[in-house]
C-alpha cells in the first residue's frame, strides 16, 4: 500500500462501505430472493446472479441482497421482495433476468414501484 493521506483514508472508507453495510445492517434497501426448492427450479439462481451483476455495475453501497425460503406461492416463482426503508415491501413474481434488471433500475435506484410485475404491496400478516 502506498503512503496515505487523510483524503485517502476517507476514500478507502467509501470504497468499502458496501461490504460493511452488509455487516452492520445499515442499509436503504433490501432485496430478498425466494430460493426454496421451487424457486430454484424456476430459475431463482439466474435472478440472483443477474441481481449481483446489476449491483456491481451500479456500484450501490446501501442495498443488501438476501435469500429466504419458499414464499408459498410456488406457481409464480421466481419471486423477490423489495423493501425500501420506510416503505412497505413489494413482492414481484414470475421474474426473469430482464425483469429483475428493470426492477433494480426503477424501484431500487429511482424509487418507483414497477407495478406491472408486482403482485402485491405489503406483506402477509404474520400473526
Amino acid at each position: 500500500m502506498p503512503r496515505l493521506t487523510i483524503d485517502d483514508l476517507k476514500k478507502i472508507k467509501e470504497e468499502h462501505k458496501a461490504t460493511f453495510a452488509v455487516r452492520e445492517g445499515g442499509c436503504r434497501a433490501k432485496i430478498t430472493v425466494h430460493m426454496g426448492t421451487c424457486g430454484i427450479a424456476a430459475g431463482a439462481r439466474t435472478i440472483m446472479t443477474a441481481l449481483m451483476d446489476e449491483m456491481a455495475k451500479a456500484d450501490v453501497k446501501d442495498v443488501i441482497v438476501t435469500t429466504s425460503g419458499c414464499a408459498g406461492l410456488c406457481s409464480r416463482e421466481p419471486m423477490a421482495t423489495v423493501e425500501i426503508a420506510g416503505s412497505p415491501p413489494v413482492k414481484y413474481v414470475e421474474l426473469n433476468e430482464k425483469k429483475i434488471k428493470e426492477i433494480f433500475d426503477e424501484h431500487i435506484l429511482k424509487g418507483n414501484v414497477v407495478e406491472k410485475y408486482a403482485m402485491v404491496v405489503g406483506s402477509e400478516t404474520t400473526y
Binding site: 478507502i12 472508507k13 460493511f20
Partner: peptide, 18 residues
C-alpha cells in the same frame, strides 16, 4: 466480529486512523 483484524482497509472503513 465485524472487521478482519488482518486487513487495515477494514479498520479504516470503520473510521480507523481518523
Amino acid at each position: 466480529g465485524i472487521i478482519d483484524p488482518e486487513k487495515i482497509e477494514d479498520y479504516i472503513t470503520r473510521d480507523g486512523y481518523l
